[in-house]
């Protein structure tokens, strides 16, 4: 049981896919100007990651090794198109804001990385947990970055005005991709210096 819990909790902080493995940074820069888009993106990625891990784990003994990666890609691409279609049908406004980035979940290294590194060797249930953990780890970073950017850039959080425009002028740098780059850089530095000290010493 503790072991299973660790599969989910590990990628949240100590082995976070974004800040520790530095995967999926592209979308973390692109969709984090607003918290609401970041949340939808997180949900979409977590769903795709869980499903792809489970499907690939179930097929793991049948997939011929030579075409392993192309099969993974095929499964992931199908799931991403599904997610995109569903978003377009049910949350049209948000899907317009996410535009190409939902499609780009395909290229998100976390999905492919987890399929290769975990789902191919482990049974479906454990793979599901691994997908969930990594998806949540990505979500935490995405929402943290989006919160900072929306707050400092537009003075709002989830569309609610926090810093009144009468005395706070939005920092445009935060709304541009370089702003996210700086924040993610600081997060990575902060985690490696203060939080994961023990891990680093083990290395």
């Amino acid at each position: 049981m503790a072991k299973l819990r660790k599969i989910v909790s590990d990628p949240l902080a100590d082995n976070n896919p974004v800040t520790w493995q530095v995967l999926g940074v592209c979308s973390a820069l692109a969709v984090t100007t607003k918290v609401s888009t970041a949340v939808v993106m997180s949900l979409a990625l977590t769903a795709v990651l869980c499903c792809s891990n489970v499907v690939i784990s179930m097929l793991r003994k049948m997939i011929p090794n030579k075409i392993r990666m192309i099969v993974e890609l095929c499964v992931i691409a199908t799931l991403v198109i599904l997610a995109d279609q569903i978003l377009r049908a049910y949350v049209y406004e948000t899907s317009k804001q996410l535009s190409v980035f939902v499609g780009l979940i395909i290229t998100n290294c976390i999905v492919m990385g987890r399929a290769e590194a975990y789902a191919l060797q482990n049974p479906p249930f454990k793979s599901l947990l691994d997908g969930l953990g990594n998806g949540l780890g990505y979500s935490i970073v995405l929402i943290a970055v989006a919160s900072l950017r929306e707050l400092l850039g537009s003075g709002t959080w989830f569309g609610l005005t926090i810093l009144s425009e009468s005395w706070y002028t939005g920092n445009t740098l935060m709304l541009l991709p370089p702003g996210a780059f700086v924040i993610i850089g600081l997060l990575i530095w902060g985690q490696r210096t203060f939080v994961s000290k023990t891990l680093r010493e083990e290395d």
């Binding site: 099969v71 499964v75 199908t78 599904l82 569903i86 377009r88 049910y90």
Partner: peptide
């Protein structure tokens, strides 16, 4: 054989979803 099967399953699934959600979109 495996590749064909994967492609078939994926494309049928996508075609179904696309027809089902098309009008709504």
């Amino acid at each position: 054989g495996f590749a064909t099967a994967v492609c078939l399953v994926c494309s049928i699934l996508l075609a179904l979803v696309s027809t089902a959600l098309g009008p709504r979109q």
